[in-house]
């Protein structure tokens, strides 16, 4: 396969940045998208150019490090698939692809397709945890968790923190990411004591970091590689409303 790639190149955060065109030749349909970029990069390095910088690590869709826009769609055209698991057989010979980094003020570009997602870590640090210091835990089976709740928690906890939700959102909102953690911890009995404070602290931090707000458009859920749904956002909204209305402990 031969492809034309229009790739965003930007040397560092302060650089202007521009789209640069590359031809990718001899691409096998069995390659992953990142393996295709590896081939392009080998050529660039040998030519004395700098390789296209992109974040990646596990290449099996779980670490959440990779991700960029392919023709305006976060992680490309396949549903529930990160770019490392996206294979070239989903493209056609001669395709023209525009590759851009996630765009959000809270995710400044570091270089080329790499953005700084440390804002996500700060949202977690603000309350995305259960305070259970090492050693203080009770016997595990003292806490019974209905299977249904454990399953809901797991559905939300599957979030890999890749940032596609922010990238796809017309408002660059981090609601889906934040909500996924609020749901994961909020449906478990262990998460109840801090439930009220958690949602407030996380949303306030999210706002403070410059993410946009949610307008219920649903692009986030549509591109989420782990298929986390809009219902998590409704859950967050509910918890936040209750935390404003109700007083007392975290049981909302």
């Amino acid at each position: 396969m031969n492809l034309t790639l229009d790739v965003w190149r930007q040397r560092h955060a302060g650089d202007q940045g521009r789209i640069v065109r590359y031809q990718a030749g001899g691409i096998s349909p069995d390659m992953s998208f990142l393996e295709m970029l590896d081939v392009v990069n080998e050529g660039l390095i040998l030519g004395g150019d700098e390789p296209i910088a992109f974040d990646h690590d596990c290449r099996e869709g779980i670490c959440g490090m990779c991700g960029f826009m392919i023709n305006g769609i976060a992680h490309g055209p396949e549903r529930a698939t990160t770019v490392c698991q996206l294979h070239m057989r989903h493209f056609r010979d001669g395709d023209s692809l525009t590759i851009e980094p996630w765009r959000a003020g809270a995710f400044p570009v570091v270089r080329d397709l790499i953005v700084d997602r440390s804002a996500f870590d700060r949202i977690i640090a603000a309350g995305g945890f259960i305070s259970a210091s090492t050693g203080s835990a009770p016997e595990a089976n003292n806490i019974a968790v209905p299977k249904q709740d454990a399953d809901s928690a797991m559905d939300a906890a599957a979030c890999i923190g890749c940032g596609a939700c922010v990238a796809a959102c017309p408002n660059a909102s981090a609601m889906l990411f934040t909500a996924a953690k609020v749901v994961h911890l909020g449906v478990l009995p262990q998460g109840q004591p801090e439930r009220k404070g958690r949602v407030k602290a996380m949303v306030e931090t999210m706002d403070g970091l410059g993410f946009g707000h949610c307008t219920n458009i649903g692009e986030c859920a549509a591109v989420c590689p782990k298929e986390i749904g809009m219902d998590t956002i409704a859950f967050l909204n509910r918890d936040l409303a209750r935390s404003a209305v109700l007083t007392g402990n975290g049981r909302a």
Binding site: A132, A140, N141, A144, A150
Partner: peptide, 22 residues
């Protein structure tokens, strides 16, 4: 044995049986 206790307390969503136990 302690690791499982610790992880459950942190909210790790381990698979459960219908009775709610691990």
């Amino acid at each position: 044995v302690e690791i499982i206790d610790q992880c459950v307390a942190q909210g790790v969503p381990f698979a459960r049986e219908y009775g709610g136990l691990l």
